[in-house]
Amino acid sequence: MSHLLELTGVSKRFGGVQAVNEVDFHADPGEIVGVIGPNGAGKTTLFNIVTGFYRPDAGKMTFDGHNLVGLKPNQVTRIGIARTFQAVRLFANMSVIENAMVGQHTRTRSGVFGAILHTRRTVEEERRIQLKAQEALAFFGDRLIPRINQLASELAYADRRRLEIARAMATEPKLLLLDEPAAGMNPAEKDGLIELIGRLRDEKGYAIVLIEHDMPVIKGVCDRVVALDYGSKIAEGTYDEVASNRQVVEAYLGKAASEVQ
């Protein structure tokens, strides 16, 4: 059986640091996979490899029948992978709707000449971009729609996080990579996030991979959890399986702690 996203033996080294070490990883349609591990375990590097920012030193990566190795980030987006960042990275000087409209870029075709000549195709396409962008923003109820013409930099922190997800949604992905979406959220916002991630899967049908340090969030949404440490996969399974794994506990708390347990 072939998976939607499949990584086999992927490795990446930076100088003397083995950031990712022969990792096997997969995600299936409609699945929510959590990636956990201490700081520096290689979680974000893994995202950067999948999205084409880094080229892996070794290993195979496929997505939806495409070979992922060697694709540029914009090509990765085109075949259906979108992501958000640990530190929110919006286009601060663009309006909320424009941020979402940029996400539609890869789904459209017409160029500068069509725009200058105002061809019908361009006009219709621009309207469709607007519509799709609005649709993505509408997913967040009345959080983003009323603020459509504000600059992204004027949004409250939680709304910026929402906009980043909306912008990723506007690329019409099959797989959504979320890098620490719960960072900086209070407990109530975290509950909202758990519900939101569930809705993203149920209503939009995305496969979702999320990096998260917040264990209640991981426990709340993930079908499967993968634990990394020093670039290597040390455990995989349901939340309970991984959370009780001796190696995982050691990675988080040190060897002595697991002996106490």
């Binding site: 920012f53 540029k72 980030p73 990765v76 992501r83 940029v102 890869t106």
Partner: peptide, 12 residues
């Protein structure tokens, strides 16, 4: 504004 994120939004 942000070349990396732009690439990730599918911009060449």
């Amino acid at each position: 504004e942000d070349r990396e994120v732009a690439a990730l939004m599918g911009i060449d």
